[in-house]
Design a protein around this nucleic acid. Sequence first.
RNA 1: CGGGCUGUAGCGCAGCUUGGUAGCGCGCCGCGUUUGGGACGCGGAUGUCGCAGGUUCAAAUCCUGUCAGCCCGACCA
Length: 584
Amino acid sequence: MITRMSTLFLRTLREDPADAEVPSHQLLIRAGYIRRAAPGIYSWLPLGYRVLRKVERVVREEMDAIGAQEVHFPALLPREPYEVTGRWTEYGDNLFRLKDRKGGDYLLGPTHEEMFTLLVKDICSSYKSLPLALYQIQTKYRDEARPRAGILRGREFVMKDSYSFDIDDAGLVASYQRHREAYIRIFDRLGLRYVIVAAVSGAMGGSASEEFLADSEVGEDTYVRSPGGYAANVEAVTTLVPAVDVTEHPPAHVEDTPDTPTIDTLVAVSNELHARAGSPWTAADTLKNIVVNLRYPDGSIEPLAIGLPGDREVDLKRLEAGVAPAEVEPFTEADFARNPVLVKGYIGPGVLGADGASGIRYLLDRHVGENSAWITGADQPGRHVFNLVVGRDFKADGWVEAAEILEGDPAPDGSGPLSLARGIEMGHIFQLGRKYADALGLQVLDQSGKRVTVTMGSYGVGVSRAVAAVAENSHDDRGLIWPRELAPADVHLVIAGKGPEITGAAEDLAAALDSAGVRVMLDDRTVSPGVKFTDAELIGVPTIVVVGRGVATGVVECKDRRSGESTEVALSDIVGVLTAMVTR
RNA sequence: CGGGCUGUAGCGCAGCUUGGUAGCGCGCCGCGUUUGGGACGCGGAUGUCGCAGGUUCAAAUCCUGUCAGCCCGACCA
């Protein structure tokens, strides 16, 4: 196929659009791949749509290769199945809801577990139909609180979602493994730099779960890695529980610590008025107790207190992962007013917990070890308790992973210190288990004629997001640089120069390449060469061929977009060279 | 949900303080010259100044409200 730029529906922009911040967003708009239609909603222009379809093709090929079968559900879905699984309410404001003319409730599908489960229930009734894997490439809708970064986080996006159906756990593990390997092939082919990390399964439910994160500073996920090979989303990192403290701590006692509502002031005053022999107090000696509200899907609210070392912040995402499906909300001034035993700035374990005066459930972060001693609030203004010992002087109602993970923290498997990095979630695979099959009654008869509940796996790839992630992973200050597998053309042929010899040679070359199966983007516009070179680099086809003054001596210039290296190739050889390059 | 910034031509922006015929660059159209790194000359078209209300003889400009966009935050007691 020859794409003529003189007639291509394309406008490149000289400057970055004012509302774009991240490189992929800026470049995809400037190079004429996408246009914003509404917040978080984008139109695909010819070049962009080609790239999107190429991502789809890679995904399709690899899904087909593991025997998954493609189906296609509607994006517009009825309420009932989502009501049955509780997600009509659980999804909250993120769900696009609409009514038909009769007042019936519908939604735009944010994900399709329910529909797949019901379809399989409709069709399969015997173990002989299993194992089974189905997938679709579908437009999904989520009314994100804050869409951002162009197509990196949109409210409408294209996702491949697949589901495996097995009779038993061993089957599920095998299906999961097949998908995992297919995903590795997919992301390798997309040319992404990525890591596979342990994850939490979030709103979908289920147990074992891993994420494929494209390495990128603009990513929204923070993950950790250790030298020994441990890798996990920060939400899924488990704390290495401190060894039990065997010290015989002195008895707890209350001290005056005037004007110490914050950890910093508390540490300063402690060292001033109640200095410890040997080593000064630090924030790590303090136990801070924060109170939040948990909002459950049914709308009910429960206050929750968390105790954690004063040198660490609460990581909201980690906490939410631990209290899911509840969401964490701030404890407001009004809440404090209703709980007068909570002395803001001086809250201590004394009033917390099931048997405390507040009755507020109290969980300790995993960093707080058994029998460890702390400075913590005495529940009176300007006073703190010293040497309050876990287990000896107070008990909590349980443990939680709430504190932030810091650079250098030990990996839970002992594989060394953790380093933190950011990534874009490109794929998520997890073993759902029987949550949806139970809720929707998906059972088949086993060999002995007994009804058994099917166990499921769920696997997603962000198809439209992949376009942005690859752009993010692969660009320079001049523009995009597509991997060959995704490029909107194989060769970008620039006609540089005037005259029938040059134009004729370029046209002949384009035709020859076309019949050799090479997809050519031919810049046959009547603009100056500088414009063409700049646009070619912006658009990012991996090979740029310049047909110009060299024609007189029978050569053209062949440039590699990524390295910038340029070689002269004889006109008589160029078709062979390019064909070999493209089909390699 | 809170905070900050921003809405003026297709795109990027100035003008607003101090109210008085709406500008610049790029792009676009025509003619001519140019053609290996965003060429040049001449001529031209394009705006409900986000929206609504108010003040005023007069509002892009001042006031009130509202909508939208972008960024940050979402809790440390």
